[in-house]
Simulated scan of single mutants.
Amino acid sequence: MAGKKASKATTTDGAEAAPDGAKSGGVVGIALLAVGALATSFATVYFLTPSAPVEATPACAPGESPAVAESSIKPNQSYVELRDILVTIGSEPATRYIKLKIAIICDTGNTTIVTDAEPVLIDAFTNYLRSVELTDFENPGFYSHMRDQLGRRSQLVLGGGVSDGVLITEFLLR
Rank of each mutant, 00 (worst) to 15 (best):
C60G: 06
P119T: 07
A69T: 02
L82R: 01
T11F: 11
A9I: 08
K8G: 10
T49N: 07
S163W: 02
D13K: 08
Y46N: 05
R96W: 12
E133R: 08
R147C: 02
P140N: 11
I122K: 12
G165Y: 10
T111K: 03
D164A: 15
I73M: 11
T40G: 03
L129T: 08
T169R: 15
A94V: 12
G25R: 09
A17N: 11
A94K: 12
A31F: 13
G90Q: 02
G26I: 08
V114C: 05
M1A: 11
F137S: 07
Q155I: 02
V166K: 02
F47N: 09
G161S: 07
K23V: 15
V45E: 03
D13P: 00
T135H: 02
G14Y: 13
A31T: 15
Q149A: 13
T40C: 04
K23R: 14
S24L: 14
F125D: 03
D136R: 02
Q77P: 07
E170T: 13
Q155H: 03
A17P: 01
R153C: 02
A43E: 04
D148V: 08
C106S: 08
I102P: 09
F137K: 04
N139P: 03
L167E: 12
T44G: 06
I102N: 11
I168C: 10
Y46A: 14
V80F: 07
A56C: 04
K99M: 12
L158K: 00
P93D: 13
